[in-house]
Design a protein around this nucleic acid. Structure first.
Lengths: 120, 120
DNA sequence: ATAACATTTGAACAAATGTTCAAGTGTTTT
DNA sequence: AAAACACTTGAACATTTGTTCAAATGTTAT
């Protein structure tokens, strides 16, 4: 093995130009892809996913949410902020309490779809 | 503001016992939830999501994949390993080349669903 | 007003993670 | 056999991120 002349790591040569162009076309809308990634990322963390799943049935206050997923109020609140900012959940204030719920049903469908993938 | 007697942070009191129990029931299958989170997490990173989107149309070798998403072969290879381990992609060897493709169509549907959420 | 309460927030910290670089594999070509 | 090639892998590094703790906010009850 010659160590000097090793590994050009292709990069110059493209094997199938057509397919690469096709793929690039799909990736054109960078902003959209980053937004999609952001949603998946938010759902891809156990604490947040548990929050979302808990909210699928009914709205819950922060306290109950923490109880349901067996976490602390502070931790839940921090994560809720991220979910709120990304508009995955919405909230409703009632006195000193805040009730959270799922923003729209696409979220439920995403979770269902992922579940199907697991259960195949 | 009395600083000593501040913030009991509920935790003892549950506001709506029934709803909390309902939510807990949904969270019973911890293993399943962690697996779902794992899938979302994998899709929630731009490099990996781009790889997946690139593969939706057709299989691609590592070199072309790197060219398509404008990344390095090494980086792509590292991420492909994670996607492989989680069975989100499969591969096929042909000589010194390796062609990757989507493992099953649930993945495409997940991406589509997320796209719909964005475009609402 | 004061106290109690539900929630939010900021700072600090450890843990997880993506990229890079260099080297290693295994296959094909010369 | 040696070189070229496509890909994989390990270590190192900077960055990101989730949790905790303490304190702050704003509302309701006393």
């Amino acid at each position: 093995m010659n160590k000097e002349t090793n590994a050009p790591v292709c990069k110059i040569e493209i094997v199938d130009e057509t397919k690469v162009e096709e793929a690039k076309k799909e990736l054109e809308n960078t902003q959209q892809i980053l937004e999609i990634a952001e949603i998946f990322k938010l759902l891809g963390e156990p604490t947040r996913l548990k929050i979302i799943i808990s909210l699928i049935n009914s709205e819950l206050c922060v306290c109950d949410l923490a109880a349901a997923i067996d976490s602390t109020v502070s931790s839940v609140s921090h994560q809720l902020r991220l979910l709120r900012n990304a508009r995955l959940v919405k909230y409703r204030k009632e006195g000193k309490m805040v009730f959270y719920s799922i923003e729209d049903e696409h979220i439920n469908k995403l979770v269902e779809q992922a579940k199907e993938h697991i259960e195949e």
